[in-house]
């Protein structure tokens, strides 16, 4: 059982992800983008954040940077729809900022649930970035 915050401008996707997580017994909050996500985080403490990296307005990288100030140890998983110019750069940056795992869209419900389970058992020991394949 975990509380998960999902952030993506692709609202349709995060809503379905939320239902998958709920169906599996987790608790999920859905935010349309990074700003809304950080606001929600103030109201509801969560165990895990899953955020898209390529978003209009405040993108995933900026979101992680801000989130780290208030929640330095909160596990983060990043996902991407893969954009050839930026995705690789975004994902590697996110990893350096402590993202535990990257998910390439589209991914299956099972992949999502595995990633959540894995992330909650593999909390980073300290603030140092952890390389995840």
């Amino acid at each position: 059982m975990a509380a998960v915050l999902l952030m993506d401008d692709n609202v349709a996707f995060v809503e379905i992800m939320a239902q998958v997580l709920t169906h599996a017994g987790h608790q999920a909050w859905v935010a349309n983008g990074g700003q809304e996500g950080l606001r929600l985080l103030d109201q509801h403490p969560v165990d895990l954040v899953i955020t898209d990296v390529v978003m209009p307005g405040q993108d995933g990288i900026e979101t992680i940077l801000r989130l780290r100030k208030t929640h330095p140890k909160l596990p983060v998983i990043v996902m991407s729809g893969d954009s050839p110019r930026h995705a690789a750069l975004y994902l590697s940056t996110a990893q350096k900022l402590g993202a535990l795992k990257t998910l390439a869209k589209p991914f299956s419900a099972a992949t999502l649930l595995n990633a959540v389970t894995e992330a909650l058992h593999l909390k980073p020991a300290d603030e140092s970035p952890k390389n995840v394949p």
């Binding site: 996707f13 379905i16 239902q19 390529v54 893969d82 954009s83 589209p106 999502l112």
Partner: peptide
């Protein structure tokens, strides 16, 4: 990139 975003909810939705 856009298609992946379009396909992601469909795939996961059918699974759900």
């Amino acid at each position: 990139h856009d298609l992946n975003n379009v396909l992601a909810p469909i795939l996961m939705g059918t699974e759900l």
